[in-house]
Design a protein around this nucleic acid. Structure first.
Length: 205
DNA sequence: ATCCCGAGGG
DNA sequence: CCCTCTGGAT
């Protein structure tokens, strides 16, 4: 299945525009319950105005809110962006840490965001479980869990570490292109033969 | 379990 | 109108 998805999406990669770990951290925090397209619309202005953690840590919350407003959850996300930057400036000497236990101590950073940083910014093994990965993993029968951390564990057991990061990317890509939550296009799906949920659905119709 | 929240699609 | 979008804190 992994190979089939890779063949389908040969250049699937992180769709959040960024330069360096701190920018990716900001973009990923902003991506909660929001499309990556919209995140990429607000980050240029964010990074132009506050170029690094030291600057953003000192920003006025209302000004940050104004810039990121269209991404939704703007009050919480502004607090997280400022708090996370302050954490990095004070506790980590201005450098984004690379370990899960450190990353998740940052304001607004949970396992999903931490795994993005580990996998994409540092080239490590990060099994990202977002809304797409959760939905497709359940449809494909790879897990029966709903809790992201349990899904993470199931996926890590099914796939070798060197595939984790890219697996997340191809699943997210497939979720966007052909298998969105609202209206999966099973009739056009090239991997329908490997999808129990899709097979059942097409039989229904 | 609930709240945070704007924007786009059906 | 209702649901979903690369979740996390309380």
């Amino acid at each position: 299945m992994y190979d089939r998805l890779c063949a389908l999406y040969p250049d699937a990669r992180c769709a959040l525009d960024h330069q360096g770990p701190w920018q990716l951290l900001c973009a990923t925090i902003l991506s909660a319950q929001c499309t990556d397209v919209r995140v990429n619309q607000v980050t240029p202005q964010l990074f132009a105005r506050w170029p690094g953690p030291a600057e953003l840590a000192a920003a006025a919350q209302e000004e940050v809110e104004e810039v990121i407003k269209s991404a939704g959850f703007f009050r919480e996300k502004a607090k997280s962006l400022i708090g996370m930057s302050d954490d990095i400036a004070r506790r980590f000497g201005g450098e984004v840490p690379g370990a899960m236990e450190e990353l998740t101590t940052l304001r607004g950073v949970g396992r999903k965001t931490a795994n993005v940083i580990i996998g994409v910014a540092f080239g490590g093994a990060g099994m990202v479980v977002d809304t797409h990965v959760r939905r497709l993993s359940n449809l494909l029968g790879w897990t029966g869990e709903q809790d992201p951390e349990k899904i993470e564990r199931d996926l890590m057991a099914l796939h070798p570490p060197e595939r984790w990061t890219h697996l997340g990317h191809v699943l997210i890509h497939h979720g966007r292109n052909l298998c969105p939550a609202r209206k999966p296009r099973c009739a056009e799906c090239p991997v329908l033969d490997l999808c129990p949920a899709g097979a059942a659905r097409t039989q229904d119709a």
